[in-house]
């Protein structure tokens, strides 16, 4: 395998190997918790912590893990980080813990995390594995936040931007702007209900497919093909 730069690995995870729109993996949290921008951000942060931790440890232990029982060992490593993030959320961010529900413990069986451990971290040294973890996490976060924002805007007509910060000694997700951004559209409640999630992701994927097809057509025309 050709040596790639640290930044190159990160960018590959965001665009070429985007876990949601390209690989179509780990869909359960993508559809379930993206009812709003805030929930999408919280899920993305929990996921990033787990993926980084699991990638680092799998790659550190890759020479010790016997190939026959590697999958159970990956699951144990992932489970450790999931338990940490679950307990931290319960202790420090109870509202987010309530909103995410069982989808935090379910990161254990998320195909993306096991897939990265198997396909990348188990075969590469620590530094590329960290880059891969960061890239895939950002790709996942971009997808989650995109879907969350679209659903919140179409479903409620407003977008409440939040950020993780500490106010009066209490950590939490606090709004960045004093008032939520409002959009001049009639709110369609169906978008925040479950069918809206399927519709949003189908429409977004169709949009990306049309965009990439157009790009490919342009390139083919440049090369002299007649389409």
């Amino acid at each position: 395998m050709a040596k790639k730069s640290f930044v190159g690995e990160i960018i590959r995870g965001i665009i070429k190997d985007n876990p949601v729109f390209v690989l179509v993996l780990g869909l359960c949290p993508v559809l379930a918790v993206t009812t709003s921008f805030a929930n999408a951000l919280g899920m993305a942060m929990a996921f990033t912590f787990v993926l980084l931790g699991s990638n680092i440890f799998v790659s550190l232990l890759r020479k010790q893990i016997p190939p026959g029982v590697r999958i159970p060992i990956f699951i144990l490593i992932i489970c450790t980080f999931v338990t940490i993030v679950d307990m931290m959320l319960e202790a420090f961010l109870p509202p987010m813990y309530e909103a995410l529900g069982i989808f935090v413990p379910l990161i254990v069986v998320n195909c993306i995390v096991i897939g990265r451990a198997e396909a990348f971290a188990n075969r590469n040294p620590v530094l590329p594995s960290i880059a891969d973890g960061i890239g895939i996490s950002i790709g996942f976060a971009v997808a989650l936040i995109l879907i969350g924002s679209v659903r919140e805007i179409l479903g409620t007509g407003e977008l409440n931007l939040v950020m993780l910060s500490v106010q009066d000694g209490v950590p939490g997700f606090y709004p960045i702007l004093a008032e939520p951004l409002s959009f001049p559209i009639a709110p369609a409640t169906v978008m925040v209900t479950p069918p809206g999630a399927f519709l949003t992701i189908a429409a977004l994927m169709l949009l990306f497919k049309i965009m990439s097809d157009r790009k490919r057509m342009k390139q083919l025309r440049k090369e002299g093909y007649e389409i």
Partner: peptide, 17 residues
Amino acid sequence: GFIGAFFAATMVALIIV
């Protein structure tokens, strides 16, 4: 493909809801 699967899922979910 995946896109069609999501559209099919939208239909069935809308029916239940």
